[in-house]
Amino acid sequence: MSDREALRLDFLRSAGLADAARAPLPGDASTRRYERLTTPSGASLMLMDQAPTAESRPCDPSWTPEQRYAHGWNAIARLSAGRIEAFAAVAAHLKSLGLSAPEIVAVDAPNGLAVIEDFGDALFARVIADGADPAPLYRAAVEALAVLHAAPTPGVLTGPAGDWPLLTYDQTALQGGADLFVDWLPKLIPALSFDDAAVAEWRAAWAPITAAGEAGAAVMAHRDYHAENLIRLDGQTGAASVGMIDFQDAVKAHPSWDLHSLLQDARRDVAPELEALALDHYFALRPETDREAFMAAYAGLAALNEARILGIFARLIARDGKPRYVAFMPRMWAHLNANLQAPGLEAVAAWMDRHVPEEVRR
């Protein structure tokens, strides 16, 4: 038995769940793992396992950009390092707003373990694939974001595992994410080569977008808000019908972030008509929003996120031996190419034209 398994068993025993049946769930692109627990009475719960030693340190709010780069990826861009404390604190905040986050049944933050409420398997992506009309689901997801965006955004969140800082998705984090593209695309596609001058041009091209993203950071962002992290909850309506999971990387960000994550999904197609309807619904719910300025940020930050995700997919394929992510890249290229037509992105589009052949960008 591994030391980690011994910790899990001790934790389950202390939570009164020693007799629960355990069924591992398929893994994702993270170091986190889940098990479904079924108690002798038939109740279903989830065991979340995020070993702190599997990740580098979270970002300290006092660190300078130089210190963040010295401490590695989580300090640069992921910020929370996926910690259990962050999940518990974000869950408490969401629930305080009437939104649906899992109840924390038991938690051992120092060892990265928690037992949480099981929202079931009705992921938006799954029920849509099974024939559900996506429009009501996306409408409810937008309503949940409108509730979140209308609420004050605290600098420190309080949850059952202690306080947790809600850090800003700032220029350092945004540019760090974008840089995954220049770091990892050449490792997947050896014909690509970006010298120091090209990387400097890349960063200069993104500077106005990252500056606008930091300046507009005003709301809590789930940061991974898409159809595989949202669960349809029966018996609920409106915003409360959207069960949210995997929000441990939440940050203070521009309100467009979760919208473009939802509507320009890396893993499934969202019809342009549905994207337009969802955006219209958001602006109807948030009539004080300057739509033109919002959509400029939406295009810029969506493009940056798509470059970031292409870099992540390249890393997953080239470094981690996960070729299934090849299938997702054409969708991301299509979104990126479309967003690069928007005003304000001319410098990034020109960089792409100079450094990335058209046959790669599809």
Rank of each mutant, 00 (worst) to 15 (best):
M1C: 02
S2Y: 03
R4N: 01
L7M: 03
R8Q: 11
L12Y: 09
L12M: 09
G16W: 03
A20G: 15
A20T: 07
A21R: 15
R22M: 15
P24W: 07
L25Y: 05
P26S: 05
P26V: 01
G27Q: 11
S30G: 03
S30W: 02
R33E: 07
E35G: 04
L37W: 09
T38V: 15
T38P: 07
T38C: 10
A43H: 12
L47T: 13
L47H: 04
P52E: 04
S56W: 08
R57M: 14
R57K: 02
C59V: 12
P61Q: 05
A70W: 08
H71Q: 12
R78K: 05
L79P: 07
G82D: 04
I84N: 06
E85I: 11
A88S: 13
V90H: 04
A91D: 00
A91W: 09
A92R: 03
K95G: 11
S96N: 11
G98T: 05
V105H: 11
G112L: 03
L113Y: 04
I116Y: 07
E117R: 11
F119H: 13
F119A: 10
L123K: 07
F124Y: 15
I128W: 01
A129M: 13
A129K: 15
G131S: 06
D133N: 15
P134N: 05
A135G: 09
A135N: 13
L145C: 12
L145R: 12
V147K: 10
A151W: 03
P154K: 01
P154W: 01
P165L: 01
L166C: 08
L166P: 03
L167W: 03
L167M: 09
Q171V: 09
Q171F: 07
Q175N: 01
L180G: 00
W184Y: 07
S193V: 00
D195P: 04
D196Q: 03
A197C: 02
E201A: 08
A204G: 08
A205R: 01
P208A: 02
T210E: 02
G213P: 11
V219M: 07
A221N: 06
D224M: 09
Y225T: 13
H226M: 15
A227W: 01
I231R: 14
Q236C: 15
A239N: 10
V242I: 05
G243K: 09
A250W: 01
V251E: 03
K252H: 06
P255V: 09
S256G: 14
W257A: 08
W257Y: 14
L259K: 06
L262I: 10
Q264T: 04
A266W: 01
V270F: 08
L274R: 02
A278M: 06
A278S: 15
H281Y: 03
Y282A: 08
F283V: 12
F283I: 09
R286T: 10
R286L: 14
P287S: 07
E288Q: 15
E292H: 05
A297I: 13
A299E: 13
G300V: 08
A303C: 05
I309L: 08
L310A: 01
F313N: 08
G321D: 04
V326F: 11
W333R: 01
W333E: 06
N337R: 11
N337L: 10
N337P: 06
A338M: 06
A338G: 13
E346G: 12
V348Y: 02
A349S: 14
H355A: 00
H355M: 00
P357V: 05
E358Y: 09
E358M: 10
E359I: 11
E359K: 03
V360S: 06
V360E: 08
V360K: 01
R361T: 04
R362N: 13
